[in-house]
Simulated assay, not measured.
Amino acid sequence: MHAIILFAHGSRDPLWHKPIQAVAERILQRSPRTVVKCAYLELTEPALPQVASDLVADGATSLCVVPLFLGVGRHAREDLPELIRLLKIDHPSIEITCQPAVGEQSRLLDLLADIALGHSIDEEGQMLESKI
């Protein structure tokens, strides 16, 4: 079983995690058989090591961590690679990969630019009209 872990910073604000969970829900809408869980670096539970352990206990044979960071600061450059290294030590028989932070992905940057310009996008990702 392959599983996706959406990884975000975390916050003391109990509503902060709602967009992260919304991404997980959209993944499930598009791919109902996909196993997807959310994990956080700090201030919000569950933590990445716990989510990985739970998924492995449930039968996951591969994990893909998707860092939901717009900026590629210390957490993405230093903390996350160390967490991935430790996960690989804790679960040596599991394939563990980590995507680049979403803020490094050109498709997201293009979408953010379109949003800022007031462009509407249809279901196929085609630009409709500008509101500006």
Rank of each mutant, 00 (worst) to 15 (best):
E42P: 14
E42K: 15
E42C: 12
T44H: 05
T44W: 07
T44S: 14
E45N: 09
E45K: 04
P46V: 02
P46H: 02
P46S: 06
A47V: 07
A47F: 09
A47D: 11
L48Q: 01
P49I: 10
P49Y: 02
P49G: 03
P49W: 04
P49R: 08
Q50H: 03
Q50L: 07
A52V: 02
A52S: 00
S53H: 10
S53G: 15
S53A: 15
D54E: 15
D54R: 09
L55K: 06
V56P: 07
V56E: 00
A57T: 05
A57K: 06
D58T: 06
D58M: 02
D58E: 11
D58N: 03
D58R: 00
G59T: 04
T61V: 13
S62Q: 13
S62T: 07
S62H: 08
L63R: 01
C64Y: 10
C64K: 13
V65R: 07
V65Y: 06
V65L: 09
V65H: 05
V66C: 15
V66E: 09
V66I: 15
P67V: 07
P67A: 06
P67L: 08
L68W: 05
L68A: 06
L68H: 03
F69G: 10
L70W: 13
L70K: 11
G71K: 14
G71S: 14
G71I: 13
V72R: 15
V72G: 07
G73D: 02
G73P: 08
R74N: 13
R74T: 13
R74K: 12
R74Q: 12
H75G: 10
H75D: 10
A76L: 11
A76Q: 12
A76I: 10
R77T: 11
R77K: 14
